[in-house]
């Protein structure tokens, strides 16, 4: 799957986009944040306060507890501030 990062999440991770293949036990958005955090200190720093992170699965806002089944694109970003 493709993982996208925006705003300060992107700056903390140091990447705007990466392609990952998480193991089968990674079933929810929370699991994915745990797994990504285990891969580098930069990811761990970006995901250290989960309350500040919003997620979208295939371009739709989703709560952290929702499952990833078949997701092609997962995005992590801070609460939006447009308009």
């Amino acid at each position: 799957m493709t993982v996208l990062y925006f705003a300060w999440v992107k700056e903390k991770v140091g990447l705007s986009e990466e392609t990952v293949s998480p193991p089968a036990e990674v079933s929810t958005i929370s699991d994915l944040m745990d797994w990504l955090s285990s891969r580098s200190t930069r990811h761990a720093a970006a995901f250290s306060d989960r309350q500040l992170i919003k997620a979208a699965v295939d371009q739709t806002h989703m709560p952290h507890a929702s499952t990833l089944d078949g997701a092609k694109e997962v995005a992590f970003f801070p609460p939006v501030t447009g308009g």
Binding site: F6, A7, A56, H61, A75, F77, P78, P79, V80, T81, G82, G83
Partner: peptide, 14 residues
């Protein structure tokens, strides 16, 4: 539309 755009549309200001 403005109230929802402010909280839902994925834009970030720096």
């Amino acid at each position: 539309l403005m109230d929802w755009l402010k909280t839902q549309a994925p834009f970030w200001k720096k």
